[in-house]
Amino acid sequence: MSSLVKCPHCGLRPREEFAIRGEVATPRPKAGADESAWFDHVYLRDNPRGEHREYWHHAGGCRRWLVLSRNTVTHDISDVVDASTLKVGGDA
């Protein structure tokens, strides 16, 4: 499913309305974390064949950041949530 995305706020919308950032990496390290934690967060990716969580931005719609659970082989989307509800970005 990468032609249409069901935005939790706007409903089923075409892919053209979204901007994609990439994989939901490890959480943003807390203040004081060492460089290796930051390196991991900023640069390293699981990049799996299969289920993948990633940031999509509904740029042409509600302008909310979403987290999609999407299969990288079939492109099927199993879940879409507003990113703020997951607190995946870290809590620094």
Binding site: A19, R21, R28, Y55, H57, A59, R63, R64, W65, D82, A83, S84, T85, K87, V88, G89, G90, D91, A92
Partner: peptide, 14 residues
Amino acid sequence: LTHLEFCAQVLWPD
């Protein structure tokens, strides 16, 4: 703007 929205919504939703 997109970057700020990411920071506000994803990194620091509180």
